[in-house]
Design a protein around this nucleic acid. Structure first.
Lengths: 225, 225
DNA sequence: CGCAGAATCTGAACATGTTCAGTTCTGAGA
DNA sequence: TCTCAGAACTGAACATGTTCAGATTCTGCG
């Protein structure tokens, strides 16, 4: 509520008001039921005004992304500070990542449909989402950086944060589809993957494993919309 | 062109004509530039008529799916018949899967956006896509069934085809994002994954590996929109 | 053949995101 | 205080997918 206070130019205030009304509506009504006309009405501006401040409806969701990923980063960083074990830190990162998405699960499909197209500015991998994506990558970079004795070869460790972030996006994709109570299945998927990570890490010392893994990580890390 | 011949009831003929015009347009113009009004005009029917025969635009893409996956199954089956090595068979299956998608790469984003939402009938994992998905699962079931001495524990082999199909969908997702010439990067991703599969298969005999893998496969195999 | 009911078809109307030509307002400098 | 360029805003118009009440055509039966 404070951000729509009377600070900045008139334009900035209007923009903030639209932003706030939109985010509130996305949270309450989801993506589809939040129409641009509704936002305009609740913000007390005309239809055209929303498009003056935000080029498209998707740009408004972008603002939501940013808010969510910022919370992600802060919470995850705080929680990870207690341990230096890589797998444990990753578990915290992923679990927190699912937690911040929680309030939006009911609306997952709507957001997902708008988000997944490579052309959409809403796509987490698109250039316009870069700030939000950067927050997520930072979480995993910290997760890796703060861990000790994980014995991961340097060249692989370097690509890891980006690849782990893609992993988070895939986990979120699974989560969107997951209709089990409390998204229990997604948790199990995460548990299984992490359980595999422990025994698998030492294998990275074998060239027959390390070489393809490095190649895969590089490809995945570079994926961009 | 034969399917719009004068066979069946009048309704069936109109339906076939609409279907044909739509598929042709999807191939030429992609998803977005194929408007329902355009289809109606080219098929010589009214706007409402298309919605009488196909409840929505997405249902028309469903028809395209089916045609593509049928080609996928036929071609893959023919090509796999020469070998019994699991990894080789999988390579053939996945490579063929990418090949049948080839003509649509330019329009990937449009189709993808329409397809990915769990609510969309267009979603490969939705109930309405079941026939198309079944064709794909059949490809991978055959790939596994026709291979010899792969040494995969029975309980895991059972879930494998469904999980491999999800793998194909993810590969297609990566492919959609892949803007490298001829989607070279996707091929490399596939190569890397398959290179990992060879050395990894024997590890399935270790309980610490097998247990989480089985859990993961089960979760992934059951994913439905 | 004639007719009733079902199948098929029609086009206007609606909701929604987006565009844009034009209008109003704001604030810095004279 | 006055001016005016640019910022901010407006609402009509457009494109598109979908819906629906009604018109038209077809089909089988007497």
């Amino acid at each position: 509520m404070f951000s729509s206070e009377s600070t900045g130019t008139k334009g900035e205030r209007t923009r903030a008001r639209i932003r706030e009304v939109a985010l509130q509506s996305f949270r309450e009504r989801g993506y589809d039921d939040t129409t641009v006309r509704l936002i305009a009405e609740e913000a007390g501006v005309s239809l055209g005004s929303t498009n003056y401040h935000f080029p498209s409806k998707n740009h408004l969701v972008q603002e939501l992304y940013l808010e969510v990923t910022r919370g992600f980063r802060e919470t995850a960083a705080r929680r990870m500070s207690g341990t230096t074990d890589l797998v444990t830190r990753l578990r915290i990162a992923y679990t927190t990542g699912l937690e911040v998405l929680e309030p939006y699960h009911a609306f997952g499909p709507g957001f997902l449909a708008a988000a997944v197209s490579p052309r959409s500015p809403l796509n987490p991998l698109s250039g316009e989402s870069e700030p939000a994506l950067a927050e997520a990558v930072a979480v995993f970079r910290e997760a890796v950086a703060g861990s000790a004795r994980h014995g991961i070869p340097g060249d692989i460790a370097e690509e890891l944060p980006e690849a782990l972030t893609v992993g988070y996006l895939l986990l979120a994709l699974f989560w969107t589809y997951d209709r089990s109570e409390g998204q229990r299945r997604t948790r199990r998927l995460l548990d299984g993957a992490l359980a595999l990570l422990g025994p698998a890490l030492p294998l990275l010392r074998l060239p027959a494993i390390r070489r393809p893994v490095r190649e895969l990580l590089a490809l995945v890390a570079e994926v961009r919309a």
